[in-house]
Design a protein around this nucleic acid. Structure first.
Length: 702
DNA sequence: CACGCAC
């Protein structure tokens, strides 16, 4: 599928300074490198919503016709041609095409479509699907532009002369540290032998050492995360400034321009030379550009910026060939058993059907949940039984922002290299990370944003490879799911023939030791039992915010969390919520809420060794301590037995598993039908498949 | 209370 013309809202199209648009289909002759845009640059006009009428200065229909007929057979050009045509330096191209280097031959669509624009010096917003080579798309022409800069003499590069901390020509900002490092690795491969110096500036590393390296080696291209970049650029003592900066690149631009980052991005921009004095090109790249950030995009880019879009508006914004499946969980406690069952079932048939080994990322909406899940699966993987199973070689790896940077880097490297592994991850890896051969992306719970889903899913199916996407949600999250993700081609599970038996199992009941699903559930319950009690509390607390906002009813969220803590975690009572928190979250009077002071012992033992001592102010800019306890937990199992008497599973006779929801009439599945027509746990087939957001057809090859 | 982002 090829790119299409970018549509601007009708009101914008009619503005005099409306940005031009570029598309693959607007470039009929791929050989015409010198001026492909002059051939067919199109002022594209279509509304952001395809239901809007098309408006155009020229006939939109005519444009579409021309574009259709000129659609090229291949989207790309050869990298080698760029050197032949003298567009890109031979050393850069050599680094790309040599088999023992990057080994690439042909440009991807986004690379092809942005190259001339960037070399020309225009501001652009480039939108392309995940895994289609956006990084190289901005690195290659940007490095070329530095080489083209007459104030930078290539001959001196080899001797590393005339490079210094003030020679920075381009700055790349990334929303996460790992992504910044990954971009730097690619940039250094590309720059090999050119004399161009690539440096990084990210948090969690020694600031002084990084600065010394920049002072010593110089820097033409600096890649970093917002906090550290702002730090070193605003600190006059660092000696690092960018008086000659010509290029600013925002990778994952929509993320960097959203609420959590935009203020810092603006502060960094204010630290750069005045664009009126030093001409500056700004480039933005992302797979997603939600409507809400377009205003920020316009504010940041020059008025005549170009929007290069390789995502057809009328197609799903991610690979259609990546099958995606929704599984309903009976309770939140069914999530981890379902993950294990999915892994087992795939791996059991992997060998006979010659499938790639299981390499999955499991995404959670809270850090504590990634940690408790990784702990449980790690302890599970230590058992002899597990090691003898088909999953015996699967490594369990955790990554989230509360690990030390050293541990984060190690986790990312281990997962990158692993053949068979499960990465339990927060959204720290959701964007841009390129882990080879990820077979499964599993999302537990409804992601906080539509875009989050797209980027997480994009960790699989990269570079033309296959993959599967799964999302596990509680039925109480159904409405939020529909609103947020309902437009995606996610296939619902069969109500009569469910894919994952553990997803729908009643975990409050004793499990049969004779069925695979019973064994899985028991394994998970026992593994969770050995997890330190404070981690269970943290996990509960960490899910409070997301659950109460993704469930349609707060009471149902509390009920589900309480059931998770008892049936899933084996806790005797759910954690207490302070009156203040209850007030803040609007939980006053909600059934099942345990109001009170947090049990001191949950936190006194072990303190914040997990990095989860709460109550701190986590905001960087607010001067608070984030509660990070560097150094991590050391080895596993150091504090076993902490879950002591709170472990209920020895008792198979307990009649009331809900325990703490007493007083509510919702002990069983009560309350779920309270909304009126919201139906039973599994929506009926008619409900599901008559809904346009549930697409039938296509085989989901489980 | 909820991703990530500096000391």
């Amino acid at each position: 599928m090829f790119g299409t013309v970018r549509r601007f809202a009708a009101s914008q199209v009619l503005r005099a300074a409306a940005p031009r648009s570029v598309s693959a289909r607007s470039i009929p002759q791929l050989q015409k490198w010198q001026s492909p845009l002059s051939l067919s640059s199109v002022v594209a006009t279509r509304s952001l919503h395809s239901s809007f009428p098309r408006l155009s200065a020229v006939s939109a229909e005519a444009v579409e016709d021309v574009l259709e007929s000129s659609r090229p057979a291949a989207p790309t050009g050869e990298f080698a041609q760029l050197a032949t045509d003298n567009i890109i330096d031979g050393s850069l191209i050599k680094n790309i095409i040599q088999p023992d280097r990057m080994g690439l031959k042909t440009m991807t669509e986004v690379q092809f479509l942005t190259l001339n624009e960037i070399v020309k010096g225009d501001d652009i917003l480039a939108q392309a699907k995940t895994g289609t080579g956006k990084t190289l798309a901005f690195l290659l022409p940007t490095l070329q532009n530095i080489l083209n800069d007459p104030s930078v003499d290539p001959k001196t590069f080899a001797r590393r002369a005339r490079t210094g901390p003030s020679e920075i020509r381009a700055l790349i900002i990334s929303p996460t540290r790992e992504l910044a490092e990954q971009i730097a690795v690619e940039a250094r491969k590309l720059a090999f032998g050119t004399g161009l110096i690539v440096q990084t500036a990210v948090g969690g590393t020694q600031k002084r050492a990084g600065l010394a390296k920049i002072q010593r080696e110089g820097c033409h291209l600096l890649i970093g995360t917002p906090g550290r970049l702002k730090d070193i650029l605003s600190d006059p003592w660092t000696g690092v400034s960018a008086p000659k900066l010509n290029t600013l690149i925002l990778d994952e631009a929509d993320r960097l321009l959203d609420q959590g980052f935009s203020a810092e991005i603006e502060e960094i921009q204010a630290l750069l030379p005045n664009p009126a004095e030093v001409d500056r090109q700004t480039l933005m790249f992302s797979a997603t550009v939600p409507r809400e950030v377009m205003q920020m995009v316009r504010k940041t880019l020059k008025r005549d910026f170009k929007h290069v879009n390789t995502v057809r508006e009328d197609e799903v914004p991610t690979h259609e060939r990546i099958p995606q499946k929704l599984v309903y969980l009976r309770g939140l406690e069914n999530g981890l058993p379902a993950v294990l069952e999915l892994a087992q079932k795939y791996q059991e048939r992997a060998e006979s059907e010659n499938l790639r080994p299981f390499k999955a990322i499991v995404y959670f909406n809270s850090t504590a949940e990634t940690k408790i899940s990784a702990e449980a699966f790690s302890s599970l993987a230590n058992s002899r039984e597990f090691r003898m199973s088909p999953l015996g070689n699967v490594k369990m790896i955790e990554i989230n922002s509360r690990l030390t940077q050293q541990a984060r880097t190690r986790s990312a490297d281990n997962f990158r290299r692993a053949r068979e592994a499960i990465l339990f991850s927060s959204d720290v890896t959701a964007r841009g990370m390129d882990f080879p051969d990820v077979t499964h992306v599993i999302q537990v719970g409804v992601p906080r944003e539509y875009e989050t889903y797209i980027h997480r899913l994009g960790r699989t199916g990269r570079a033309g490879k296959e993959g599967e996407g799964w999302i596990f949600i509680h039925k109480g999250e159904h409405e939020t799911y529909r609103k947020r993700l309902g437009r995606l081609p996610i296939k619902g599970d069969s109500p009569t023939n469910p894919t994952l038996l553990t997803a729908g199992a009643d975990m409050s009941q004793p499990q049969s030791p004779d069925t695979p699903e019973g064994q899985i559930i028991t394994q998970i319950q026992e593994a969770l039992a050995s997890v330190p009690a404070d981690l269970k509390v943290s996990s509960y607390m960490g899910q409070l915010g997301t659950a109460t906002s993704s469930f349609s009813y707060k009471g149902e969220a509390i009920q589900a969390l309480n059931q998770l803590s008892s049936i899933g975690y084996g806790m005797a009572t759910p954690p207490y919520l302070s009156p203040r928190l209850v007030q803040q979250m609007g939980l006053r009077g909600v059934t099942g809420v345990s109001v009170g002071d947090r049990p001191r012992e949950s936190f006194s033992r072990g303190g914040d060794r997990d990095g989860f001592s709460r109550g701190g102010d986590r905001g960087f800019s607010r001067g608070g301590d984030r509660g990070f306890s560097r150094g991590g937990r050391g080895g596993r199992g150091g504090s076993r037995g902490e879950s002591r008497g709170d472990f209920l599973f020895g008792d198979r006779n307990r009649g009331d598993r809900e325990g703490f929801s007493r007083g509510g009439d919702r002990g069983d599945r009560g309350g779920f039908s309270r909304g009126g027509n919201r139906g039973s746990f599994r929506p009926s087939g008619r409900e599901r498949y008559s809904d346009p957001s549930f697409k039938e057809g296509g085989s989901f090859d489980f």
